[in-house]
Amino acid sequence: TRVETATETAWISLVTALHLVLGLSAVLGLLLLRWQFPAHYRRLRHALW
């Protein structure tokens, strides 16, 4: 049971790290898009909202 718990903890930390990385890359990508294509971003936002 001790090994299982350790594996579970490792998986949880791995998944958390993955989610953090994905979230950060998504935010960075959005910022980059907004910085590179302001007109396109505004049009996209206008279409979405």
Rank of each mutant, 00 (worst) to 15 (best):
W35P: 15
R34K: 15
A39S: 14
L18E: 02
A6S: 14
L14K: 01
G23C: 14
V15N: 03
V3D: 00
L14A: 04
R43I: 09
L32E: 08
L20W: 01
T1G: 06
L18P: 05
V15S: 04
W35V: 15
R43D: 10
H40A: 12
P38S: 15
R34F: 06
G23E: 02
R2A: 12
L31R: 04
L28Q: 02
H46G: 08
T9L: 12
V27R: 05
R42T: 14
T9G: 11
H40E: 09
L44C: 15
L24N: 00
H40R: 10
S13R: 07
E8Y: 05
Y41H: 07
V15A: 01
L48E: 07
R2M: 14
T16A: 12
T5F: 02
L14G: 01
L48S: 00
V27H: 07
S25F: 05
L30D: 05
L24M: 13
A10Y: 04
V21K: 03
S13C: 11
L18R: 03
L22C: 12
A17I: 11
L18N: 05
S13F: 14
P38M: 15
V3L: 12
L31P: 06
E8F: 01
T9C: 06
W35N: 15
T9H: 10
L22W: 03
L32G: 04
R2I: 13
F37W: 07
R43G: 05
Q36W: 15
Y41G: 08
E8T: 06
I12V: 12
S25C: 12
L18V: 05
A6D: 07
W11A: 00
P38A: 15
T9I: 13
L33V: 10
A17T: 08
R45A: 06
R43N: 06
H40L: 09
A10C: 00
L48D: 08
R34C: 01
L14V: 12
Q36R: 15
W11F: 10
P38K: 14
G29F: 13
L20A: 10
V3F: 05
R45E: 05
I12D: 00
V3E: 00
V15L: 10
W35R: 15
R45S: 04
L20V: 14
L24H: 03
S13D: 06
